[in-house]
Design a binder for these strands. Structure first.
Lengths: 226, 226
DNA sequence: GTGAGATTTGACCAAATGGTCAAGATGCAA
DNA sequence: TTGCATCTTGACCATTTGGTCAAATCTCAC
């Protein structure tokens, strides 16, 4: 379970957040995601985040003690969602089904929330100052575990012999690229993942290339659970 | 030819830069690349760039009229290098040789200059405020041209039927991922592209996966020109 | 050697920005 | 209704930072 030690606003005697707190924290985190992903940590301003969240800067600082705290919270907020799909890779399942479902999930998430993808990319590109510990523990464990799943498929002769880690990296790289570089994608093709047709076309192309690359035939489109 | 309209320091009556100007501009651009790629545009400070370049802030501002001008110049400085490899794809060549050479080149460049890769990624992720015009013209033309090359290989029955544009995107995504996310790579594998063995292993893995993915057999390692 | 132009710098300025604080507004349990 | 805790805000402050400027220093053709 990825955790980043978020600080609850220092009020409310007992555990739970009040109705107002719940609402405002979410407004702030949404706004923060937009700003941080668009301008980077330094480029984002507390003032703009507050405005986007529909409150004064002072009030925002009432809920989060500092800009850094907002950033950490926003990152923590998306981290689980971002890393979750990999957990579903099932060793018992059919490799073609499992991997195509995984790739499709990643692309779907990239399409739904490109901002989260960019925030994550930004954080990692700048040296992962906040989430390095999570990468080194939780994610590392997860990748190691899923590599074994892929290895088991190899030894069972179900897929070609490939390096599982590089396979995972390739899947991450490719799927996230369409979110992170969507401006470039759009400049070159006129479309991006927000276009439903383009998204499906992308899913097909990526799944086709990677599955073929590991020696599988692509499962029939209609046989795949949405 | 990608161009971003760089401004020559407003001195020197005739065209060429003086020896000192040449040297200092390069010092500045190198320092700027490091800072911008590490902290993003807003996070980088003119003061730190100047310090890294071994001169005072005032002096730096003597060579570049503003922070934005440094950024634009740094971007222009790397753009050609960054986009060049694709130009070498030769329609007459053997697809396996051409594509593996291209992939190898991209990884080589990513390894040599991960900062340039991150600067480029940063720029694009933030909406490509500076280089969008270049993407929409030069790069678009180039991709269109090279897509035709790949198409010709398909119609000649040399490779499987794949979408050329998505193939190019996949190659970009994968190769750049190793530079842009090197911290994550290192957190998960203990190594990154600066490790010679890991670099070769990565080249082999990526080339193997993609070439196989488009229906080619991977050319013998020793048969490839360095 | 000398002087004009190129180079370099410290002092300084204005704007932006993260954060504090005291006071006022609001919600809510009794 | 009342009183207290929660919530909200504008005024304010200190620091950072991009950029200016005049003066000092250096370079080099003559």
């Amino acid at each position: 379970m990825a955790s980043l030690g978020g600080q609850t606003p220092e009020n409310t005697k007992s555990g739970g957040l009040s109705r107002i707190q719940e609402k405002n924290r979410n407004l702030i985190l949404d706004a923060a995601l937009g700003e941080f992903s668009k301008y980077g940590y330094s480029g984002a301003t507390v003032e703009r985040i507050a405005a986007k969240a529909g409150m004064s800067k002072s009030n925002l600082l009432y809920y989060f003690s500092s800009k850094g705290a907002i950033y950490t919270a926003a990152l923590a907020h998306i981290l689980d969602v971002w890393l979750a799909p990999l957990k579903t890779l099932d060793p018992e399942g059919d490799p073609a089904q499992e991997l195509s479902a995984y790739i499709r999930q990643k692309i779907e998430i990239s399409a739904e929330n490109p901002q989260a993808s960019r925030l994550f990319a930004n954080e990692v590109m700048q040296g992962a100052p906040q989430i390095l510990p999570v990468l080194e523990t939780d994610l590392r464990r997860l990748v190691s575990e899923k590599s074994k799943v892929i290895m088991s498929w190899i030894t069972a002769g179900k897929i070609r012999q490939v390096d599982p880690v590089h396979l995972i990296f390739t899947i991450w790289a490719t799927t996230q690229h369409y979110a992170d570089f969507s401006i470039q994608i759009k400049a070159l093709t006129g479309k991006d993942l927000s276009d439903e047709d383009f998204k499906l076309q992308t899913e097909r192309a990526v799944i086709d290339l990677i599955l073929t690359g590991i020696g599988l035939t692509v499962p029939d489109e209609t046989a795949i659970a949405e």
